[in-house]
Design a protein around this nucleic acid. Structure first.
Lengths: 144, 144
DNA sequence: CCGCGAATTTAGACACTGTCTAACCCTCAC
DNA sequence: GTGAGGGTTAGACAGTGTCTAAATTCGCGG
């Protein structure tokens, strides 16, 4: 399958390689491919989808490499991991501090850009639905 | 292994059976055992722990039955499912509307009783830690 | 008490996601 | 060319949960 027309593959790969280098990641072939899949379409993709997308392009990449690379990207703060369900873990290329609103009824995942969280800033529930409660999962780390 | 002394097994089983009946659940032997494990110690237990605890009592209960029963309890709103990690799913016998505060750094899970959520009502972060963001997972359902 | 049909339970096979291992490959310095 | 080290790989493995088909139990009318 051909690469999409939206980005010039050559220059895109260059800047992605730079991005990796800026995060102290050795930009190998496979890593660039994986990063490109993640950043090109700015969606939240699962490991599974990433494997499919990468292998639909040029390179054959093994499952182990994709998992290794995602873990590396996580450590280097290039992406964030988002656990929606035990069988639905997705990766978020947006590393600016932000929050996520996930509605299990509709499957819709919304980004909340604020850092000033109040219930009033959340999107309204779809009409005719009620909430049993909100699970707030806060991901902390030692201050740098 | 003997049953604990804290509850009279007979009457406890009676009231638990009633609880199940009130939720339109046929109170079989195994279901009562599982419910008893969940409600006796009012902790958040994983499916794994529930299997161990049930089998440490009297009854031998198969893995499939425990999973079936937990799914049934969920449908009947007897318990809530709490996804902390892909490999850490626990069940909460407290069905009053409330929220959860989980700190991945400490592993501590706190109940937030309010229905008026504001960031100010959350426990303070441990000193020396910062947050990369908060994932708010809201579990909705059609209004009754 | 008997026996029937429906509901429930069961063991074990299966699927899925992610991890691990040990071998291989590629590059680069010398 | 050669050795060292990082990166990649296939496939085995582990944990969690689902499925299936058979066996058991239960409710209940006769």
């Amino acid at each position: 399958m051909e690469s999409s027309q939206t980005l010039k593959p050559g220059m895109a790969k260059e800047s992605i390689a730079d991005l990796l280098r800026r995060h102290e990641i050795n930009p190998t072939h496979q890593r660039v491919e994986i990063a490109q899949v993640l950043f090109e379409r700015c969606e939240h993709l699962s490991a599974d989808q990433i494997i499919s997308h990468v292998n639909a392009r040029f390179a054959e990449t093994s499952k182990a490499t994709v998992y290794n690379t995602l873990k590396l990207f996580l450590e280097k703060k290039l992406i964030r991991e988002l656990i929606i369900d035990p069988n639905k873990v997705v990766y978020d290329p947006n590393t600016t501090p932000h929050h996520h609103f996930y509605d299990v009824a509709t499957g819709r995942l919304t980004d909340i850009p604020a850092d000033n969280i109040r219930i009033g800033t959340l999107p309204a529930l779809p009409p005719g639905t009620v909430s049993d409660g909100v699970d707030i999962i806060i991901r902390t780390r030692p201050a740098a």
